[in-house]
């Protein structure tokens, strides 16, 4: 297996999961708590990355981050480097693309926490911040972990967005999924099967782990 691609893949998947835990959990908590009229609109926006074909989404991200856009130019003036075709570029694209895969399980997990327990904590004088860490998180962690594992696995298998924004550069933006695709295109079926087998066994483990964690009891 291509070790440079393996490293890029692991880095990207861990980085995406980390960012989505840090940004996604507060966002999900806000969505689970908030009651306002426009909430359905926010939910719809978060689910949007599910709609577009990944290469098309990648195409728009490419233009949004590229030197022809205000955002891309702003980043270049600030840092002196460009976003597309760099690791940071595919990292940002991957966070955007995985938003629904993280936030939706998080919201479901947080909504399932009994409201009465939260209110009881508040009545006992525990701050909102502490209530979140000492009551809500301990009760919802299997769901949050499930969302994190799903995000990780989905990033590993992501192809279209990473190819478009990353430009298939070995050691920088070429992930295992792109390696498999390249091998199939090059008719190297044996090499493709080897990498694909690695990806499939990894994904199986990740998904089995997710479902095992969601199981309430192991008695049955």
């Amino acid at each position: 297996m291509d070790s440079a691609a393996l490293w890029v893949t692991v880095k990207l998947a861990l980085g995406t999961t980390l960012v989505l835990l840090l940004l996604g959990v507060p966002l999900a908590w806000w969505l689970a708590q908030a009651r306002f009229r426009g909430k359905f609109l926010v939910e719809a926006v978060i689910a949007l990355p599910l709609v577009l074909p990944p290469t098309v989404l990648g195409f728009y991200v490419l233009y949004a981050l590229g030197p022809n856009s205000t955002l891309g130019r702003g980043y270049e003036t600030l840092t002196g480097s460009r976003l597309p075709f760099t690791f940071v570029g595919i990292w940002i694209a991957s966070v955007l693309f995985n938003l629904p895969f993280a936030v939706r399980p998080f919201v479901a997990a947080l909504e399932a926490v009994d409201r009465q327990l939260i209110e009881a904590a508040w009545c006992l004088g525990v701050s909102r911040w502490q209530t979140f860490f000492r009551v809500v998180l301990p009760l919802s962690w299997p769901g949050i972990l499930a969302g994190a594992v799903l995000t990780f696995a989905h990033t590993v298998g992501e192809f279209g967005v990473v190819l478009m924004v990353g430009g298939n550069i070995p050691g920088v933006t070429r992930t295992l999924s792109i390696v498999v695709y390249d091998e199939v295109q090059a008719l190297n079926y044996a090499a493709a099967a080897q990498t694909a087998w690695g990806l499939v066994s990894f994904s199986f483990t990740a998904l089995a782990l997710t479902y095992a964690l969601q199981r309430k009891s192991w008695l049955v």
Binding site: T55, F59, G66, P67, R82, F85, P170
Partner: peptide, 21 residues
């Protein structure tokens, strides 16, 4: 020589955004 293979159209969109090739 470091080569990336792909569709000409995809490369075109990327090079219009100054991909490092």
């Amino acid at each position: 020589v470091r080569v990336s293979y792909g569709s000409s159209g995809t490369f075109y969109a990327q090079l219009a955004n100054e991909a490092p090739f």
